[in-house]
């Protein structure tokens, strides 16, 4: 009888952790500008361009990418479990759309007199993630409500209302985009395509804090997540307070999505692809699947962003384009496979 034991937990997580560490080092060294590592490490002052590029430009960006890739994958895992739908992900449910709108409104409506006190960096780590969090939470609850009939969640309605909600939000964002000034609009577009760019270490640290907090909260619910995949009734009968679980998952994942979207816009498909691949490799037990997906998501986005930086160097692609290139075909393949399975071919 093969079940999840401590040995497997430790083995899988340490292998992935080692791969992640390797990826962070490798991706920091890779880039359009060739770096001399020994020279960079020899002199860490501002005067040394090699160390400046390595530690000021690349490393914070790589670290941010890891946090966001991991966070997206973890959110994908829990939303798929909670909604009983292996095709659920933050994009498909309209959640990241809601978060974007929240973040944009947060930016636009931010009272001007507060700017000198709480603008700039402080707004970036507190105000915008908070607004995006509220946007994510509201849209998640809205889409959920619209797919609930007589206490039953209809997966078909869920995906459909999520997709429609997302297109609606996209229209609202485009409208806002066309009424704000040209300079702001340009930045907004790049952000909407999903991109990572270099940020201050303080921002990176705050995003990590949001994401680690949310992740640990979700991980603590690992066992309940296993049970909720059996459906709400079965989970109730096995001892899960499903209402409380749902609320906590919604809040924790909205917090993470809000933080992620506030710095990187909508980086799609990570939350769909990584959980699927990891489920095939490590199994469906969420006590392992969740940390494994987090680590694998970090590794994946780390490399995807490196590709985005060097593919058209010196120009730079938004990383969302790279993930979509991988994720779009992957999603169609999944849909096809699910279809075959349900027809028992």
């Amino acid at each position: 009888m093969k079940v999840l034991d401590r040995r497997k937990m430790i083995l899988v997580n340490s292998v992935l952790l080692a791969l992640l560490a390797l990826s962070i080092v490798a991706c920091t060294l890779l880039g359009p500008v060739r770096l001399d590592l020994s020279r960079a490490l020899h002199d860490l002052s501002f005067a040394n361009p090699d160390s400046e590029i390595l530690f000021r430009a690349r490393l914070p960006r790589v670290l941010l990418g890891v946090a966001i890739g991991g966070g997206m994958a973890a959110c994908g895992v829990v939303l798929q479990a909670l909604l009983g739908n292996p095709l659920a992900c933050p994009q498909m449910l309209g959640v990241s759309g809601g978060a974007s709108l929240g973040g944009i409104l947060g930016l636009i409506l931010f009272p001007n007199w507060l700017l000198p006190i709480a603008g700039g960096l402080l707004g970036e780590i507190s105000w915008v993630p908070l607004a995006a969090f509220l946007g994510a939470l509201c849209s998640m609850m809205l889409v959920y409500r619209f797919s609930l009939f007589h206490g039953r969640l209809h997966p078909y309605h869920l995906l459909l209302s999520g997709v429609i909600f997302n297109s609606f939000i996209a229209a609202v964002i485009m409208f806002l985009n066309s009424i704000i000034d040209f300079y702001q609009a340009q930045g907004l577009l790049f952000w909407l395509m999903g991109s990572l760019s270099t940020r201050a270490y303080l921002t990176v640290a705050f995003i990590w804090a949001y994401i680690i907090f949310g992740f640990l909260w979700l991980w603590a619910k690992g066992l309940s997540l296993n049970l909720i995949t059996l459906g709400e009734e079965a989970a109730l009968q096995l001892g899960v307070e499903t209402g409380a679980l749902q609320r906590q998952i919604f809040i924790a994942s909205s917090l993470m999505i809000g933080a992620m979207v506030s710095v990187s816009g909508m980086i799609g498909f990570v939350g769909l692809m990584i959980p699927h691949v990891m489920r095939l490799i490590v199994g469906s037990d969420h006590r392992l699947l969740l940390p494994a997906s987090f680590l694998a998501g970090g590794i994946f986005l780390c490399w995807a962003d490196t590709l985005a930086r060097i593919a058209l160097a010196p120009a730079e692609l938004p990383v969302g384009i790279i993930t979509a290139f991988f994720g779009g075909p992957f999603f169609l393949f999944l849909l096809y496979r699910e279809g075959r399975k349900s027809l028992a071919l």
């Binding site: 009888m1 093969k2 079940v3 999840l4 798929q80 479990a81 009983g84 739908n85 292996p86 296993n226 995949t229 059996l230 459906g231 489920r279 199994g283 469906s284 037990d285």
Partner: peptide
Amino acid sequence: SMNFPYTVAE
């Protein structure tokens, strides 16, 4: 219903 691949033992 079972949408996720769990083994019998799990």
